[in-house]
Computed example of a mutant assay.
Amino acid sequence: MHEAESPLSEPALPFWVSYDEESEEPGDTMALFGDSGEAALRSVPLGPLRKNLTEAVDALQQLFTDVAARGGPLPLREAHLSFQVTAAGGVQFIGTAQMQSSRGIVLVFKQ
Results as ranks from 00 to 15, higher is better:
95 G>P: 02
104 G>F: 01
10 E>W: 01
73 P>Y: 09
49 L>G: 00
94 I>L: 13
48 P>N: 04
44 V>Q: 03
38 E>S: 12
50 R>C: 00
46 L>M: 14
90 G>P: 06
54 T>E: 06
48 P>I: 02
104 G>Q: 01
51 K>L: 09
26 P>F: 05
101 S>E: 07
8 L>S: 15
91 V>N: 01
91 V>H: 04
87 A>M: 07
110 K>S: 15
55 E>W: 01
50 R>Y: 02
86 T>K: 02
90 G>Y: 07
67 V>N: 00
59 A>R: 07
96 T>L: 10
102 S>A: 13
111 Q>S: 13
67 V>M: 10
64 F>W: 14
90 G>L: 05
98 Q>R: 09
77 R>W: 05
2 H>A: 12
97 A>L: 12
86 T>F: 01
98 Q>H: 11
38 E>C: 08
35 D>R: 15
36 S>N: 13
84 Q>D: 06
72 G>C: 04
8 L>T: 15
58 D>P: 02
83 F>P: 01
37 G>I: 02
90 G>V: 03
33 F>V: 00
55 E>I: 00
84 Q>G: 07
54 T>P: 03
2 H>V: 11
13 L>M: 11
83 F>T: 04
69 A>L: 11
54 T>H: 06
39 A>I: 03
59 A>H: 06
90 G>E: 03
53 L>H: 03
72 G>R: 08
9 S>N: 14
95 G>R: 15
61 Q>K: 12
17 V>D: 00
96 T>I: 00
20 D>P: 02
38 E>W: 10
76 L>T: 00
29 T>E: 13
33 F>G: 09
13 L>C: 09
33 F>A: 14
25 E>L: 15
28 D>R: 11
40 A>R: 14
82 S>Q: 11
9 S>G: 06
34 G>F: 05
104 G>Y: 03
